[in-house]
Simulated assay, not measured.
Amino acid sequence: MCYEKEAVDKLIKKYKTCDPFELCDYMNIQVRYSDIGEYRGMYRYSKRNQFITINTSVPDELLKIVCGHEIGHAVLHRGINRIFMDTTFFSPSKYERQADRVSAYLALANWDKRDLYGLSIDEIYGLTDIPIEYLWLVIGK
């Protein structure tokens, strides 16, 4: 099992939810909305406080995806002293790909694997609205 999937499974088991906004509440991560230019989301850790900022221009159907991505940074990269900013769905950065996987696993957690078995990535996208680029990271071959 991959590192990101294990991290998501631990979160879901501990907090009994896969909803990124509920996870933020449980994990004491402050979520804010602001115009942050070209960035969809940003995670920041400062003085034992965690913040996620989501761009006010993010469409409603992507809010959980963006928040889930930033939770990926909170869970996997908190000790790294830098600000993570997400601008595209498919970033070449190792850290961005890991955060993308966390977001995808969180989004897929509500789906019964039997309902998705044998479906193409395009078909899964049609059912789940999880960005295809994220799906490729977790189930693409």
Rank of each mutant, 00 (worst) to 15 (best):
R114H: 15
I54L: 01
L137R: 11
D86H: 14
M85Y: 06
N28I: 07
C18S: 14
L137Q: 04
E96D: 15
W136F: 11
M27L: 15
T128P: 10
H77W: 05
A109T: 06
G79M: 08
C2D: 08
L62V: 00
V8R: 00
I124Y: 05
V58L: 08
A7N: 10
G126S: 14
Q98D: 15
A109S: 15
I121P: 09
I36C: 03
N110A: 14
T88C: 07
F21I: 03
K47S: 12
R44P: 02
R32Y: 09
V75L: 07
Y105M: 12
D100P: 02
Y105C: 07
K13L: 13
N81D: 15
R32K: 15
N28D: 14
T17C: 08
V8N: 02
F84R: 05
I52P: 01
V31R: 02
I65A: 07
C2R: 14
S34F: 07
Y117N: 15
T17P: 08
V102G: 01
H77Q: 01
I139V: 14
R97P: 01
F89K: 03
I121R: 04
Q98E: 15
P59K: 01
I132D: 08
E4K: 03
L106E: 09
W111Y: 14
V58N: 00
G79S: 12
L23Q: 02
R40S: 12
T128Q: 10
L119M: 14
V138A: 07
A109G: 08
A104T: 05
S93E: 13
N55P: 02
A109N: 12
I130C: 04
Y45Q: 06
R44C: 05
F89V: 11
L127N: 13
C67V: 08
I139N: 12
P20A: 09
R78G: 06
L63N: 06
E70G: 04
N81W: 11
K14Y: 03
S91K: 10
Y125H: 14
R82W: 10
P92R: 14
I139P: 10
I12L: 03
Y125E: 15
D115Q: 15
V138T: 06
V75E: 06
N55Q: 08
K14L: 09
F84Q: 10
L76G: 08
F90C: 13
M42R: 09
I65C: 00
Y134K: 13
I71Q: 01
H73Q: 11
Y45C: 05
D25F: 10
T88V: 11
L106C: 12
E96M: 07
F84H: 11
I52T: 00
F89G: 08
A7S: 13
K5N: 02
E4P: 03
G72H: 05
I80S: 06
A104K: 04
F51W: 06
V75S: 07
I83A: 03
S34A: 15
L106M: 13
K141A: 13
D35F: 01
N49K: 14
F84N: 12
D122Y: 12
R97M: 14
M27F: 07
Y33E: 07
Y134M: 10
T88I: 07
V102N: 05
I12T: 12
Y39W: 12
P20N: 08
Y26F: 13
I52D: 04
G41V: 00
I121Q: 02
H77D: 10
I132E: 11
I132R: 10
V102P: 00
